[in-house]
Simulated scan of single mutants.
Amino acid sequence: MPPTDASADAGPVPVHPVHPARSGPAEDTRDCEDTLDLRLPADLLALFAGKANSAAPSHDGQTSSQDQLGPLDTLDLLDQPANWGPTDTPVGTFHLVPAHVERDLPIISRWMNDPAVAAFWQLAGPQAQTEDHLRAQLAGDGRSVPCLGSLDGTPMSYWEIYRADLDSLARHYPARPHDTGIHVLIGNAADRGRGLGSALLRATADLVLDHRPACARVVAEPDLRNTPSVAAFLGAGFRYATELDLPAKRAVLMIRDRSLRHLM
């Protein structure tokens, strides 16, 4: 099972290649297999098939070629995170940029080999392991988008924004249409434990709710043992909904509701 946020104040968040770390509500915790093979109908794929002419922004706001972006351009399952742009936060200007393997693999792989991150993401090892994880999402249908998060222009975190209602996580909680999940890791130890995690989780949840009008809830499922991660989600306005027995971990279902976003 993927990660969810590991290490003091928004560390990694366990996630699988195409189905990142799962998180979601949890009243229905039926014992199901970890693979939910939800396929998009052919007519829906055809509907989006011609929308592949936009370019993906780089860390400095420039664009790069479409072939690097892949399925993010052809489908709109997540309302194009590539176009969400930067946002101001109490800790600086934050920007989520869809990951490109050739550009971002070295830094993401280095972060995955940090013991604090590896304990929850389980992607420590050669770059090829992280590369397989990224390419599985980039070659998918757009239901999971791996991103690099930069703060004031410096890449410092890795994120996976995914459709929780189309993910295997949906087998473990009563998912609602357009539920959107978050997995995150803060790359450098010096950036953990000082409030950055909560600030950036709140900013990212707000980006989802601002740019995905059909989404009523942002969800996450950090490992129950990952106390700093759970605390970071609580500090970001998520509520502790329940605990879930997922295939690879005992998780906490964290939810940020659109209807409560200005109260929490």
Rank of each mutant, 00 (worst) to 15 (best):
D34R: 12
E221Y: 08
L96A: 08
Q129N: 04
H16N: 06
A232W: 04
P115Y: 13
S54H: 14
G125V: 06
D28M: 14
D43C: 11
G70S: 07
S7L: 09
Y240N: 06
D73N: 14
D5V: 15
E221Q: 08
A118V: 06
A248Q: 08
S58M: 13
A128R: 06
A136N: 04
A10T: 10
R202D: 11
R22P: 11
A248T: 10
F233D: 02
R217D: 02
F233R: 05
D5Y: 06
L151K: 09
T87G: 05
S198C: 05
L44G: 01
F48E: 05
L72Q: 07
F94W: 12
L72I: 13
T89P: 01
P3T: 11
Q80F: 11
A248R: 08
S259A: 15
D34E: 03
D223W: 15
Y173W: 05
A220W: 09
E131S: 05
S144T: 15
F120Y: 15
G149A: 13
Q129R: 15
L44Y: 12
P57H: 02
P41E: 00
A82Y: 14
R250K: 14
P106V: 02
L40S: 07
L151D: 01
Q68P: 00
K51I: 06
N113S: 14
N83D: 12
L78I: 14
A216N: 04
L138V: 08
I161C: 00
G24N: 07
L224G: 01
G140M: 01
I161N: 00
I107K: 03
D88L: 11
H178M: 03
T89W: 00
N83Q: 13
D28Y: 09
K51Y: 13
A55S: 12
A82F: 15
G197Q: 06
M254Y: 10
A248N: 08
F94D: 01
A139T: 04
A99H: 03
